[in-house]
């Protein structure tokens, strides 16, 4: 589904943050992307959802070469990818309900058609009683779950989550992890970027480990 071939990335004139990174993400797979802080996890995810162009190498998303992709095609590809940003990126003037519904709204869907789905998903992440709250009044863990719900609302083929347990206590982290596993069982590929070893020990999953710009894949 996603393939990197000898991808290199540098910021400015610094040494490469990623060098010769090659891997393949099969459909419906589950993997952790790990490595110490500053190893390049976020950078790699940004390459994955086309928020950054690689310095060299080839990236293939859903069978299309990203570098030669027409800009008009990008929104359609992005709609197949759900992203949970490390800093959430919720819109603070919109209620939680509206934040989660946003991906559907920008796809031109009618509010009546998604009301039920959005409410159900927010129930599932444990925020069913806060539909009308605004993001600024939420705790870190609650924002995290809103961000996850927004990434999932249109049933993406792949979910990218950047440190999704970074702001929550261990029991909430376990809950979120179970949520990702459940999601994966229903057919969505999942990549979780984390440096939390405790989290990874709870699941026997593929591990992509970044260190010194190189990527090693285990499992």
């Amino acid at each position: 589904m996603i393939r990197f071939d000898n991808v290199g990335l540098r910021y400015g004139l610094e040494p490469e943050v990623l060098s010769d990174v090659s891997f393949h993400i099969p459909a419906q797979s589950f993997q952790f992307l790990t490595g110490p802080s500053g190893a390049g996890k976020t950078s790699l995810l940004r390459l994955l959802f086309m928020s950054l162009r690689p310095t060299r190498g080839q990236i293939t998303l859903f069978g299309k070469d990203v570098l030669s992709l027409d800009r008009n095609e990008m929104p359609m590809l992005r709609r197949r990818i759900g992203v949970v940003f490390q800093d959430f990126r919720l819109l603070s003037h919109m209620s939680i309900f509206e934040n989660v519904a946003l991906p559907l709204r920008v796809r031109g869907k009618d509010a009546a058609s998604y009301r039920h789905d959005v409410t159900e998903l927010l129930d599932w992440v444990g925020l069913g009683d806060k539909l009308n709250a605004l993001p600024p009044v939420l705790s870190g863990g609650e924002k995290q779950r809103v961000a996850i719900a927004r990434a999932l609302i249109d049933q993406p083929e792949i979910l990218l989550a950047d440190e999704p347990t970074g702001n929550v206590d261990p029991s909430m982290a376990r809950r979120l992890l179970r949520l990702f596993i459940e999601l994966n069982r229903s057919g969505t590929a999942v990549i979780i970027a984390t440096h939390d070893l405790g989290l990874m020990e709870q699941v026997d999953a593929r591990r992509m480990i970044l260190s010194n710009g190189h990527l090693d894949v285990f499992g």
Partner: peptide, 8 residues
Amino acid sequence: VLHFVGAR
């Protein structure tokens, strides 16, 4: 944000 949630 609109861009990354897939808006044209």
